[in-house]
């Protein structure tokens, strides 16, 4: 079994690790549920109706393959965040089926049918009374990761985003960009299979946002998790992802899918290329059509 997750890895030798190592090979593993093990998330006609009734989502279908980075763009209020919460298991769909495949040990060592998920919110959502390192420690505590493992994991996490000297600082002392970096590595410290990002960089200034986009890509290339990235910024979506899904206004559904052909690692200056601009324009146009 090839060990692709080199940076934050302690469960590679687990016999349950399964399909992860051949996520690039294109080979189809059929799991007991009959779904390709390659698909980490499969949504089929997922709908969500809140009591009222308000139809938040109408028949959303898409698949996320293992190791893939997909962005979802859509006008505000279209249910993007709701979709992300469904995937995270924070909400349950009222129709359709949503499956997260693979029996993957979570950071706690317990295996379950739900892959370990990391979530990054719109705000950094750091506990104000905990220092940076204690905020990163929180998921480890909640998942009962043995204490002796914490220090090394937190150190690695802080080094990944260059915040080593801020280990003891409190969130109120950090800039918005730094707080978001902490939130990012907090979500990654449990070594999740799937990272869900809910417009994480929306409140940041443009330069900080671009930096964090580059940092995020670097982390993704090093650690090979899968990610669903929600944003309303088309340029961000194009820069980051392999595929961009476009959602319509409420009731939300996916109206278009764009493949982004740029090779990784992506240099920051591809943002200035003609292909990049054309793709971004196409997606923007599609978004605008969907919104009317």
């Amino acid at each position: 079994m090839s060990q692709t997750r080199t940076t934050l890895n302690c469960h590679c030798d687990s016999p349950n690790w399964g399909g992860h190592s051949n996520y690039k090979s294109g080979q189809m593993n059929i799991s007991s549920t009959g779904i390709s093990k390659e698909a980490l998330v499969s949504c089929r006609d997922v709908g969500l109706v809140f009591p009222g009734p308000v139809t938040a989502l109408a028949a959303v279908s898409f698949r996320l393959r293992r190791g893939e980075l997909v962005s979802i763009v859509g006008p505000s209020g279209c249910g993007k965040s709701t979709l992300l919460r469904l995937i995270a298991g924070l909400l349950n769909p009222t129709s359709g089926s949503l499956e997260l495949t693979g029996e993957i040990p979570s950071a706690s060592g317990k295996s379950g049918d739900r892959p370990d998920v990391g979530f990054v919110f719109q705000d950094a959502t750091l506990l104000p009374w905990r220092s940076v390192q204690d905020n990163i420690r929180l998921p480890l505590e909640l998942l009962h990761v043995p204490r002796p493992e914490h220090t090394a994991r937190i150190q690695t996490a802080l080094e990944l985003v260059g915040l080593k000297e801020f280990a003891n600082a409190f969130p109120a002392q950090l800039s918005g960009g730094m707080r978001m970096r902490v939130a990012l590595v907090r979500a990654l410290v449990t070594q999740p299979q799937l990272l869900l990002l809910d417009e994480p960089f929306g409140a940041l200034d443009e330069i900080t946002r671009q930096r964090l986009n580059e940092d995020l890509l670097e982390l993704w290339q090093r650690q090979h998790w899968s990610a669903v990235f929600i944003t309303h910024n088309v340029f961000e979506a194009v820069f980051l992802s392999q595929r961009v899904l476009v959602m319509s206004p409420r009731p939300g559904k996916i109206v278009a899918e764009f493949a982004i052909p740029f090779e990784y690692p992506r240099a920051p200056d591809i943002r200035g290329s003609a292909d990049f601009a054309r793709l971004a324009a196409e997606i923007s146009l599609c978004l605008r059509k969907a919104a009317t």
Binding site: L90, L127, L138, P139, L142
Partner: peptide, 29 residues
């Protein structure tokens, strides 16, 4: 308690006890 903090704890399948001692009690200080 901020709903997002509750969601954060829910992501990690936190027990009621964990939510109480690691979130609610510090929040109430």
């Amino acid at each position: 308690v901020d709903a997002r903090f509750l969601e954060l704890f829910a992501i990690y399948h936190s027990s009621r006890w964990q939510v109480l001692w690691k979130l609610r009690v510090p929040n109430c200080v």
